[in-house]
Amino acid sequence: MSPIQEIIQKVSASHGTERIALLPILQAIYKNNHVLTEEDMIEVARELDISAAHVYGTATFYSFLETQKSGKYIIRLCKTITCMMHGKNIILQELERLLKIKPGQTTPDGIFTLTETNCLGQCHKGPAMLVNDTPHTDLTPENIREIIDKYRREALQ
């Protein structure tokens, strides 16, 4: 069984093998591989017995699913109004300086992907960002360095 089939089988245990299982399957593959490749999508389409175009349509609709390879840690910095008011741009500059990449890019070592995202629901503690699933709030240029260092150390271990 291919790794993708294994993931599909695992998700199907709780969500079934019909199209209603599609989003959970895509989420699980993305969580595992940090990318949805064309081969993956064709495989999913075959397993669920739906058209690959439908799988592609769903996969490309959602901002938390990507068809390009992301780093081990995906940084999603909130750019919506209150985070912007509370200094999101300074945080972004600091992140760009620390990681030496621009939003949409991945570090050459494959550890970090930097993106900007819409409201994370942490408006009272902005600026805020997600690193994979973990929220970090009340960001400052100082504490952002520590956060990045912590993840980098984890990745290198």
Partner: peptide, 20 residues
Amino acid sequence: SGAYICGEETALFESMEGKR
């Protein structure tokens, strides 16, 4: 999976059904 529109109830159903 990160889509504001899915807060709209019928878009939410579509999303749960594996669609855009």
